[in-house]
Design a protein around this nucleic acid. Structure first.
Ligand code: MN
Ligand code: MN
Ligand code: MN
Ligand code: MN
Lengths: 225, 225
DNA sequence: CGTAAAATTTAGTTATTCCTAAATTTTTGT
DNA sequence: ACAAAAATTTAGGAATAACTAAATTTTACG
C-alpha cells in the first residue's frame, strides 16, 4: 500500500503542505517559485500526483492543489525527518541554525524510519527544531501552535519568540546577533503605520525591523502590558 | 571542473573500484550482478562514463573497465563517505555492524563535505569502519593493507582479524557470535584440502568454517608458530 | 462590461537511467 | 579446431522529471 515516493514527489508534497497550512490551496505559480521549477513542470507533476493511486493531491484545473489524507501523511513524514535532522545536526555535530537547512533538505529523503527513531530517542524526542518550528509527532500529527507573526503585534504587546520561519543564512545570522532566537522575550515599543516597521526590545537591545522580517518571526503573546 | 555526479554514477564508480582493487578490470557482468542492474544497462552507462569529460573510466569493448584518475578520485570520495558513515552510525546511534550498510549506502551520496569533516573529527578521524575496512584519508588515499584472506592460511598459522568483507546481515551476526570481529586473535588448527574447510580457534572457541566464509575474513598474519 | 495582464495549461522536447529481446563476440571444452 | 556456452553489445523502448514556446483561462481594473 505504502509506495516509495521519489525525492521529487516528497519535495512537492512538503511544499504543498507548507503552502496550504493557512487553509488555502497551493497555486501552480507558488509551487513553481518555492520549488524552483517551471510552472508547466509543476502542472505536469501535479497531474501525476492527483492521478496516483491512492491520490496524493486533490486538483482541479486553475484551482490549485490540496493534499489528500495520504498526501498529508507523506508530507508530515518528510517534515518530521527534516526538522529532526536539523535538531540533530545542531545538537550533535555543532552546526549552527543557519547552516542546517540545506543538509537536512537532502538527508530528509534518504534516512530510514529506524534512523528517524534513533535520533529522536537520542535527543529525548524534541518537539521543535532549531528555528522553533514544531516537529510532527511519531504518529504524524502536527502539534498545535498558537503563536502569531510579530508583524501582528502593536506597541505594548510582547511575548516569547517561538519560531523563525526562514532558511536564509544571512537573515538567521543577523537575527541571532540581535538575540531574536526561540525563547527570547520581546516587547514591541513602537509601530510605524506607514512602513509597518516595528521597534522591538530584546533584552536590553532595541531594534527596528521591517515587515519582511517581522512577518517571519512568530510570537507566543504573553500580555497586553 | 568537478561536476556533481549522480547517485547512479557514484554507485558505478564505487563498484568498479571494488572490482578492480585486485588489479584486473571490471567485467560488465560482474558490475551488473553487484549493482543489480541488467548487463545491457551497464554497457550503456559504461559508455557514458567513458565518454564523459573528463573521462571517469577507461573502456574497450568486451574488455571490461578500469577507473581513470578522475574516476578513482570520485570512487574514493564515496567510499570514504560510506565507511565514515558506518563508523558514525555505530559509534553515535548504537547501530550494530550488521545494520549499518544499507543506511550508509543511501546517505553516502547526499552528505556534504562539511558533514564528512564533522563526523570524521567527532570520531577522532578513524582509520577503519566497523567491519575493519580501511577508510580513505581526507586527501583520498586508500591506506595500505597487508592482510590476507583467512582462506589462505594453513594449520599453525594465525593472526589478528583486520576486516570482514561482507554486508550480509546474517553472516555478520553469526560471525559476531563466534567472536570473529576485527581485532580478534585467531589460530588455524586444521585444514581440510577437499572442501577447503578451516578449523579456527578464536579465544577458547573452536569452529569449522567453509571457504565462502574464510574468503571474506582478512587476517594480519602474526606468526608461523 | 470588456480588455489587458497574470496565471495556468497544453504541446512538443530533452536528458537520465533503466528494461527486454536479439545479435554478436569471446571463451571453453573436447 | 570448432561448436556450444557464456559474455557482451546493439536495438528499440519505457518511466521520470525537467524544459521552452504557445495557447488558454482566470483575474483585475478602468
Ligand atoms: Mn528536499
Ligand atoms: Mn519517518
Ligand atoms: Mn549507494
Ligand atoms: Mn567527501
Amino acid at each position: 500500500m505504502k509506495k516509495k515516493l521519489t525525492i521529487s514527489t516528497e519535495d512537492y508534497l512538503k511544499t504543498i503542505y507548507e503552502l496550504t497550512e493557512n487553509g488555502e490551496s497551493a497555486s501552480t505559480n507558488a509551487l513553481a517559485q518555492r520549488l524552483k521549477i517551471s510552472a508547466p513542470s509543476v502542472t505536469g507533476m501535479i497531474k501525476k500526483l492527483a492521478s496516483a493511486k491512492p491520490a496524493l493531491v486533490e486538483y482541479q484545473k486553475h484551482q490549485g492543489v490540496t493534499l489528500t489524507r495520504e498526501g498529508k501523511r507523506a508530507a508530515l513524514e518528510v517534515i518530521r525527518h527534516h526538522r529532526l535532522l536539523e535538531a540533530w545536526l545542531v545538537q550533535t555535530l555543532g552546526y549552527s541554525w543557519d547552516e542546517v537547512h540545506e543538509e537536512a533538505e537532502r538527508l530528509e529523503h534518504v534516512i530510514s524510519e529506524d534512523f528517524e527513531q534513533r535520533i529522536a530517542a537520542a535527543m529525548g524526542h524534541p518537539t521543535r527544531d532549531p528555528h522553533g518550528e514544531p516537529i510532527p509527532t511519531e504518529d504524524l500529527k502536527m502539534p498545535a501552535d498558537t503563536s502569531v507573526p510579530l508583524s501582528a503585534l502593536r506597541s505594548g504587546q510582547g511575548g516569547i519568540v517561538t519560531c523563525v520561519k526562514s532558511s536564509e543564512t544571512d537573515l538567521l545570522r543577523h537575527l541571532e546577533e540581535l538575540g531574536l532566537v526561540p525563547d527570547a522575550e520581546i516587547t514591541v515599543m513602537d509601530y510605524s503605520p506607514f512602513d509597518h516597521n516595528l521597534t522591538i526590545k530584546v533584552g536590553r537591545k532595541t531594534t527596528v525591523l521591517g515587515l519582511s522580517i517581522t512577518s517571519k518571526i512568530f510570537i507566543e503573546v504573553e500580555s497586553g502590558a
